[in-house]
């Protein structure tokens, strides 16, 4: 039943659209499509972005691992290396601070009328094209540095995922409590 649903192209396009609508709605309603909220987070004055992300991670982590244990989901693990993840992540971070939106929230920002997001979207399209042009050279050099492949944290420690889920869940809860006590 699920495999028919997942291999039906038209249903999947509609599913993608539906999930996107919900995602955009939640991002806008949570306030993270606002430049002020994102910059407030990066200036460590307003922790809305971190609260949303960490809550989503806890709930999604428990749900997806339960689905996986029950055989309803397979993990989709992004590969990584020091050269790709760290360098790419830092470049992304500078763009994040300069633009004040991320790739998803700037689309939502355009939906709420923030016209500067149009320039962010145009810039990002050019950026992905520039990366595609540079990819052959990068993939032979820097992207290979410190390659650690497709690995999860439980696999890294050769542990069952559930204790890690519990540990991460507790750590995130403690962080959220600390953020609330600090009143940010």
């Amino acid at each position: 039943m699920l495999s028919t649903l997942r291999s039906h192209r038209r249903i999947q396009l509609v599913a993608g659209l539906f999930i996107g609508i919900c995602f955009g709605f939640l991002l806008q309603r949570g306030g993270v499509t606002r430049y002020e909220v994102v910059i407030g987070q990066l200036l460590l004055q307003d922790f809305t972005v971190v609260k949303i992300m960490l809550t989503a991670i806890v709930i999604g982590m428990i749900g997806v691992h339960a689905l996986r244990s029950a055989g309803y989901a397979t993990l989709s693990k992004k590969p990584g290396s020091v050269g790709s993840t760290v360098i790419g992540g830092l470049i992304f971070g500078v763009g994040f601070g300069l633009l004040g939106y991320c790739p998803g929230t700037m689309i939502g920002a355009l939906g709420q009328g923030s016209l500067d997001a149009l320039f962010g979207i145009a810039g990002m399209l050019i950026g992905t094209a520039a990366y595609a042009a540079a990819f052959p050279a990068l993939s032979k050099s820097i992207l290979r540095v410190g390659d650690f492949g497709q690995i999860t944290i439980p696999e890294l420690f050769r542990a069952n995922p559930w204790p890690v889920v519990a540990g991460v869940g507790v750590c995130i809860s403690v962080i959220l409590l600390a953020v609330e006590y600090a009143g940010v």
Partner: peptide, 13 residues
């Protein structure tokens, strides 16, 4: 900023 997000997001995957 958008340009850097484009490069960085693809670089980091």
């Amino acid at each position: 900023g958008g340009f850097l997000l484009g490069v960085g997001s693809r670089w980091a995957g």
